[in-house]
């Protein structure tokens, strides 16, 4: 009887240990293609995931920033403008929480694209950054051609910003999580604190994925 009980306990313990070791991974969003190619004389089938295309913008310091500057980083992207009267303050209040959570993580960055580049010059963005209380190169506020930004929004699977008389622009308040392979790993409503808490948890999960730890 006693032996049986001990046996059962051992099994349960082992079972739990197994579960503990099981790697939790995030899903990969976006379109995917299955391609068959020939490599070294062998035919291999591979899944190609949607990735964020190349881009070129300027940050709040006036430095040119391209997709290359984000190589080897997990990053969170959003779209905003500095004179936004509606959802932006609440988004960036929440993004500050993300910023503070990963302040010391070398491979996590945040990029915020302005959708109003004619007003949000580099100087305006720098002032906004100072007032928001962010410094260094953890969180870039990016400015560039309007068409480029709008086109990029589509590849993040968020709707293109709309011009609106009262609110100036209507845009999504999503925070998009991108992995080191530039794949979309999650979308979170940046205006909802619970979603932002989930984002922070998901970044930790993502950071631990083998694909991410080995990527340069």
């Amino acid at each position: 009887m006693m032996k049986k009980l001990i046996g059962a306990a051992v099994i349960i313990l082992l079972w739990n240990a197994c579960k503990f070791n099981e790697q939790k991974t995030l899903p990969i969003a976006g379109n995917r293609d299955v391609v068959t190619k020939t490599a070294d004389g062998k035919t291999v089938t591979d899944t190609v995931y949607q990735t964020i295309p190349a881009f070129k913008f300027v940050n709040q310091y006036g430095d040119s920033i391209t997709n290359k500057n984000l190589d080897g980083n997990i990053y969170v992207a959003d779209f905003f403008f500095t004179t936004c009267p509606s959802i932006c303050p609440v988004m960036h209040r929440n993004m500050l929480t993300v910023y503070n959570a990963f302040k010391d993580a070398a491979d996590v960055k945040i990029i915020s694209h302005t959708i109003d580049p004619s007003h949000d010059s580099v100087a305006v963005l720098k002032k906004y950054a100072d007032k928001l209380g962010i410094a260094g190169n953890k969180w870039w506020l990016l400015q560039g051609k309007k068409e480029d930004t709008y086109k990029l929004a589509a590849s993040y699977l968020v709707s293109s910003p709309q011009v609106d008389a009262k609110e100036k622009y209507i845009h999504d308040g999503y925070f998009i999580l991108i992995d080191k392979q530039k794949r979309i790993r999650g979308q979170y409503d940046g205006t909802v604190p619970e979603q932002v808490t989930k984002l922070i948890e998901d970044i930790k999960t993502l950071k631990a994925e083998p694909d991410q730890t080995t990527a340069k």
Binding site: I87, P89, V90, L96, D130
Partner: peptide, 16 residues
Amino acid sequence: CQNCHGKNGEGLSALI
């Protein structure tokens, strides 16, 4: 008001 001034009236850094 809440979007800018916050749920607890905390504002936002030196912006709001």
